[in-house]
Write a protein that binds this DNA or RNA. Structure first.
Lengths: 110, 110
DNA sequence: TCGATATATCAATTAATCATGAAATATGGA
DNA sequence: TCCATATTTCATGATTAATTGATATATCGA
């Protein structure tokens, strides 16, 4: 993960529809959600949704897979891991006092 | 943390100078870094840096504190924790299989 | 092969963001 | 009080992003 990729990822997550899509894909896990389902769940027109999904794809945050006539989207957990590690790199100059509780709390949220 | 705050945080992190600033503040921990130091470290003009620091402040990602003539900035770890929990909420519908390794890898990065 | 469904692409308009010059505010020291 | 330093605020022009209508592509079933 370099800064260009990280910037693209954060930019992708800084728009309401895309953030909601990504959170739903995180929740959905392996199952994923089709483009059409996402559009109707979030009440977004199909071309707008398609454009937003393309942004998430280009940012590397999601993958997709054709399934008959529909296309299913999935969160890319590996990319998310990379992004978060990039952000927290050398946190507190290496002392874990500050980041350890941050991380532990996150586990509980899961 | 609601979606508005999360969007503001991701938007704040989606610009090169601000992302670099935030990562430096994460590294700096308790010590923080002054506005002027950040400007010269990253070779950014003072008013541009000031505007970018204001964006990070408004997004709740950093705090500041006047110290004589200079103003010192600090990463807000609690806000970061809130943001990450928001993003990972109900990850994989509650099963931790997917998020557990993601989190564990993060700890190592610290 | 034809029509229906699902999704993507294109071009254009509108809206938001960014960096900058100029000026203002706050602090500390002579 | 006056000057220098550190930082913020304001107005503006330039770049970039978002949504949309129209159209294209891909898949499925009759």
């Amino acid at each position: 993960m370099d800064i260009k990729e990280a910037l693209a990822a954060f930019a992708a997550l800084s728009q309401q529809t895309r953030l909601e899509v990504f959170r739903r894909l995180i929740k959905a896990g392996e199952e994923g959600i089709s483009a059409g389902e996402l559009g109707s769940q979030l009440d977004v027109r199909q071309n707008t949704m398609s454009a937003n999904l393309t942004v998430l794809l280009n940012a590397g945050l999601v993958r997709n897979e054709r399934n008959g006539r529909s296309i299913r989207y999935f969160a890319d957990f590996e990319a998310l891991r990379g992004l978060l590690s990039f952000l927290m790199e050398d946190c507190c100059g290496g002392s874990t006092e500050r980041c350890q509780p941050l991380i532990e709390e996150l586990v509980c949220a899961c």
